[in-house]
Amino acid sequence: MNTPPVNIAPVAPSGAAQAAPRADRPLLAISLRLCAMVLLATMFMLVKYVGEYGVAATEVMFWRQAVTVPLVLFWLGARGQLGVLRTTRMASHARRAATGTAGLFCNVTAAMLLPLSEATTLGFTTPLFAVLIAAVVFRQPVGVWRWTAVVLGFVGVLIISQPGHEPVSPWGVAAGLGAGLLVALVSFQIRDLARTEAPICCVFWFAFYGALIASLLLPTSITPHDATEWALLIGVGVSGTLAQLLITFSLRFGQVATVVVMDYTALVWATAYGWLIWDRLPSAATWLGAPAIVAAGLVITWREHRLSRAISPGSSLEDV
């Protein structure tokens, strides 16, 4: 029996403004998402590279967020659109930023500790955690297709982590799975905010509060940098900002079920960077486990589309 579609997003405050509907432009949406995945893979490559210089994950996380704030302000100011940042939901933005910053820390840590292909693959577990959250927290009925996808996905995780053999970094695996869980939680918060807030407003306040949160950790981790390290840190911030903007705006022109499939192309770029820069291709375990995780995500996306959801929690790379 098919599971009936249930809107699991929290209801926006009464009287909240609704965004004007936009006509779908699927080719544009897919193109934006593909470009975002190139930038996202580039960001994590730079994260891993700067980590090899000894820069702490907490400092990388700060610069990833801090660079976004002036970039967004400059762009909106040049267009005379600073007013779009006004909001009556500052507490919601702060809560989203707290969860998203924790997820970003996990993503950065996984990129530093794991080969890029493995770290990227573990990031694809977000749809699996989203299904678990929907079932356990929101009490949404979940049918056999999505439960099967969850089991298949976590079998893939077990294969990649290689228990009983020579494993990849257990802390890296834990960070990758933590990122998947936290970004899934953020997806539900974003769904709520998207009812009343412009995408660029969500991006800005996430970066603003995220930088404030990360700055609290700077005294314990900041170190002097040479020109190369500063260039890498700024590159992390710029590529991450552009990736997040393109991910966000791709959803203005296409349904999640259409564009989210493009997220898996990030694995292609991560593998290419791993080979070109570190002369490392994915292990045999990754070649076996990654298809299981990707297939699980595709099944969940397909079911979301079949159940006619307006917005799916499977947008796995919203906070980067």
Rank of each mutant, 00 (worst) to 15 (best):
P4K: 14
A12E: 10
S14G: 11
Q18Y: 08
P21L: 09
D24G: 09
P26W: 09
L32S: 04
R33S: 10
L46E: 08
R64M: 13
R64D: 07
V67Q: 01
G80C: 12
G80Y: 08
V84R: 15
R89W: 04
A94I: 00
R95K: 12
R96Q: 06
R96L: 08
G100M: 04
G100S: 09
F105W: 14
F105E: 10
N107Q: 14
N107Y: 10
N107A: 15
A111G: 12
E118K: 06
A119R: 02
F124I: 10
F124S: 12
A130S: 15
P141M: 14
W147Q: 03
A149K: 01
A149D: 05
V157Q: 01
Q162D: 15
P163V: 07
P163L: 12
V168C: 09
W171I: 10
L182P: 01
S187H: 03
S187Q: 08
Q189I: 00
D192V: 07
T196I: 09
C201E: 06
C201N: 12
F204C: 02
A207W: 06
F208T: 06
Y209V: 13
A211K: 00
I222A: 04
E229P: 00
L242P: 07
L245K: 06
T248P: 03
F253D: 00
M262H: 03
Y264R: 00
G274C: 11
W278M: 04
D279N: 10
R280Q: 13
A285I: 07
T286D: 01
G289E: 01
V299E: 03
V299S: 06
I300E: 01
E304Q: 13
R306T: 06
L307P: 04
S308Y: 05
S315T: 15
S316E: 13
E318L: 11
